[in-house]
Write a protein that binds this DNA or RNA. Structure first.
Length: 271
DNA sequence: ATGGTGGGTTACCCA
């Protein structure tokens, strides 16, 4: 599907840094913004404790893959907008291990025959350039690229969203000199991100804004948010058909200003 | 000035 019109869907990604703690923020944001598909990262909860009922009361079905303490991803699907049948899966045999960092769902907007693929990832942070976790991050990204190439080849419309833990370019960094070749900004990480775009995806935010100074994550330390010390590391990437119908994309900084916030802001695209 | 905060948990963890 290329050159098509818009589906009229608002899709989003948000690293909530503990769904247990952030559920009130999430519900407040869902009610205000009414996104149709949401990828959540760092839910930090096991599946038996996932607040599926509370989210259903907010109008969303959930699919989720969690583990104790770390990681955890979920997809929220707005009931009113989609057919009931949802094909979903977590994990991928190409990935280096079983950490819960990837989940994908195929949904059908009500009254259509469109098959929309929504993939949500929590890319490893990598800790520090050159360390073992950094190598793991690059291996994980290589596996993701292979997976994305396969998804793109399947010709379905694909949105790949998540916390990529990569600021793609210097304009995505508050102080490019200070961050030069540091974690989240190093050349191998940026190449891995570029390889995802080269597979046939578009960074929706950069379709609508080319200016520096737009960030999606601010460190809790150093009063990062108040001082504007951020990076743009959360992304909504769209295959060609979706990108051509993408009418808007933004970073919603408001929830980052609320009490007890996640360190990430939600990112949104209208397709 | 090389720290700091905020999740998780009880691991000199992870971001």
């Amino acid at each position: 599907m290329s050159g098509g019109g818009s589906l009229g869907l608002k899709i989003a990604s948000w690293n909530v840094n503990s769904l247990r703690v952030r559920l009130p923020h999430l519900q407040r944001w869902l009610a205000a913004e009414q996104p149709d598909l949401v990828g959540l990262q760092e839910t930090k909860t096991t599946d038996d404790k996932f607040p599926a009922e509370a989210l259903h009361a907010s109008g969303y079905r959930s699919v989720f893959a969690g583990q104790p303490t770390y990681n955890g991803v979920a997809i929220l699907i707005r009931d009113a907008q989609f057919e009931e049948a949802v094909d979903w899966s977590a994990q991928d045999p190409r990935l280096p291990d079983d950490q819960k960092r990837l989940i994908a769902a195929t949904v059908t907007p009500k009254g259509t025959t469109t098959r929309l693929r929504f993939m949500n990832v929590y890319v490893p942070n990598g800790s520090e350039v050159g360390c073992e976790k950094y190598d793991y991050k690059l291996r994980w990204l290589d596996a993701l690229k292979t997976r994305i190439n396969k998804e793109i080849a399947s010709q379905t419309q694909l949105a790949l969203v998540g916390d990529f833990n990569i600021a793609p370019e210097d304009r995505d960094v508050h102080d490019p000199q200070a961050w030069h070749e540091k974690i989240l900004c190093s050349t191998p990480e940026r190449r891995a991100f570029a390889a995802l775009l080269a597979a046939g995806l578009t960074d929706s935010f950069r379709q609508h804004c080319t200016e520096p100074g737009y960030f999606s994550w601010w460190d809790y330390r150093q009063a990062g948010f108040r001082r504007g010390l951020g990076l743009r590391i959360d992304h909504v990437l769209l295959s060609a058909g979706l990108a051509s119908g993408c009418s808007n994309a933004l970073i919603d900084k408001e929830p980052r200003s609320w009490d007890q916030p996640s360190d990430h802001a939600p990112v949104v695209a209208s397709v």
